[in-house]
Amino acid sequence: MRMDESGRSGLSQIAMMPIHFLMGVLDAPLRWLQRATGINGMAAFFLLPNMMIFGVFVLLPFFINFAYSMTGGTALFLPDRSFVGADQYARLFDCGSYIDPGSCAEDTFWTAVRNTGWFVVLQVTLMILVSLVTALILNRELMARSFWRAVFFFPVLLSPVVVGLIWKWILQRQGLLNFGLYSLGFDPHVWLNDRNWSFAATIGVSIWAHMGFYTLILLAGLQAIPKDLYEAAEMDGTRPARAFWRITLPLLMPNLLVVVVLVLIRAVQIFDEVYVLTGGGPGTSTLYLTQYIYETGFAAQLRNPGLAAAASILMGAVLVVLTLLQLGLGRSEKKGGRK
């Protein structure tokens, strides 16, 4: 991470000149400010830009979201909207039977909830398994380990839109997958027109896109386990399976918990790549919560910001619980006395 010394001279120095000049010009008024506020008062100055942006674009929306969820109508600005109390929540929860989305007033919401639920359960399980196996394999005595690590990490940086398009192209009628099946003597299939395959595709593609990231965190955890523990275990005649369950897994647990919670939080919010890949279809088979909120709030013919806000607050509550879970687990882990 060391700066290249030669890089500092020459061109970059010329490039930095206007910045140095600007910073120098700023110095005089700021010295005056510093005299007025004192040294510790300058802390507020340094904090101000971040806090302003943060307050306007994060805190404020967070609080008025509750207000939105208690108003109705299609008007955009809060003062133009009519107060309806808990009507939006009541509408979301108005169901004949919670198991059957068709019996609900807001049936797409419940479809999205159910889809997201299944997606989270399956995607999180598979993601953890695939990442863990990959991390274990990359942690072995391996030729060119950094190359293999890069192979699995590569899709992580791709934009969700690119990921969606890559796989849309592969899963389409004349795509690579059908070509492969055709060469093996099977019939081609229009995968993304099939409700079940489409759902499976969203799981597979999201794992493909993100597993490298979690593999990396797990691999870092595995590499932090001292090698001599395994040598001691080898001297003790420990079989590999027992060494895995009794040494590797317990020592990897902190990283594993972080990964589980991160995967959970991301899975609940899944949107981008699915929106490009399937658009929520066919029908509503891959409609997930974020897309429901987006469409209810912005894209629908009759948009309903209040309903979208209410749904987003319910989703936010789930995320808060998951994050607190992570913090809680992290703390109990620290209390355990390690690190």
């Binding site: 967070f62 979201n65 939105y68 709030g297």
Partner: peptide
């Protein structure tokens, strides 16, 4: 803020930006 992702506040954020 880590707990307040975009998908949770997009409706009011949109009104503020507007």
């Amino acid at each position: 803020t880590l707990m307040v992702p975009l998908s949770v506040i997009m409706v009011p954020l949109y009104s503020i930006v507007s």
